[in-house]
Design a protein around this nucleic acid. Structure first.
Lengths: 145, 145
DNA sequence: TGCGATTATATCGTGTACGATTTAAATAGA
DNA sequence: TCTATTTAAATCGTACACGATATAATCGCA
């Protein structure tokens, strides 16, 4: 038990903050070529994996709520990447579906992951292990919250 | 080389995004008791470590620029946590100094780190290793950027 | 059937982030 | 010395992120 506050460098939270930050700055120019922001890209990744999902399902996966997702999805709809439509079976929910343009981006943006991996400059096994450690940490933090 | 986009769970960037997110959600209620946001807390940690720094020095450490820091520091000044004053030796720069109230928070908020460690529910060595891996990743990403 | 409770999304206000630009001070060179 | 350049903050516009609240559809149950 220390009698002083930890320094920034000692804080795990700051190492997460910084790494996430650095990752964002690397993605930004790559995504800008497609007029995408980073959260918009994550929505696309989720929809490429499984299309036609409710807003709340996207929210569960991305850990975002409608107050963030609604305007974000509206911007993506305005950009012609997806469509939002009330679910005829339950008009409370909204189904998000990729347009042809949104689907086509999967191929065009495929190279982005490789650019990031190249920038990380570490072997795949090491990065995969880091990823899995982060998943386990995230799970524990959510449990505690 | 895959011919499909990676899933969210496979993306290292998303594991960082999620872990950072989960950490933020854990900090939020702990910091709310002091009327602090997470970036404001990081500024305090930096100043507790070394007080009386230029805005640009804080920016280097936190990886933030004046467009983000200026309004953030103004809010903290309005809250009575710090003072902003032009540097008499070079009127271009602004020196940020803690008030007594800002300094006093170091002791009052000391427990926060322990709450986070408890939530992470892992031994210190494991968390320290994760932190160091993240530092190395961040350094490589910045180099590449 | 009817009505209170629940659920899903949307809206609002505040606070980061960041690219682009502006302003003011300091510095370097002719 | 005078001016072009550089540097440090600040300002502006856009886009997340989130707590609190509003709205509308559905469900549960008497």
């Amino acid at each position: 038990m220390l009698d002083r506050a930890l320094t920034l460098d000692e804080l795990l939270c700051f190492s997460l903050y910084s790494a996430n930050h650095a990752m964002g700055r690397l993605y930004r120019p790559l995504l800008a070529r497609f007029d995408l922001t980073y959260p918009q890209y994550l929505v696309l990744v989720a929809l490429w994996q499984q299309d036609g999902r409710k807003v709340s399902d996207l929210g569960t996966e991305l850990q975002l709520e409608s107050n963030t997702l609604t305007p974000l999805l509206k911007r993506m709809e305005a950009a012609g990447l997806l469509r939002r439509a009330r679910n005829p079976q339950d008009e409370r929910s909204v189904i998000v579906t990729l347009t042809d343009k949104g689907r086509a981006l999967e191929g065009e943006a495929a190279d982005i992951s490789n650019c990031i991996l190249a920038a990380a400059d570490a072997d795949l096994a090491e990065l995969a292990e880091l990823r899995d450690r982060l998943h386990r940490l995230t799970a524990r933090l959510r449990e505690a919250g």
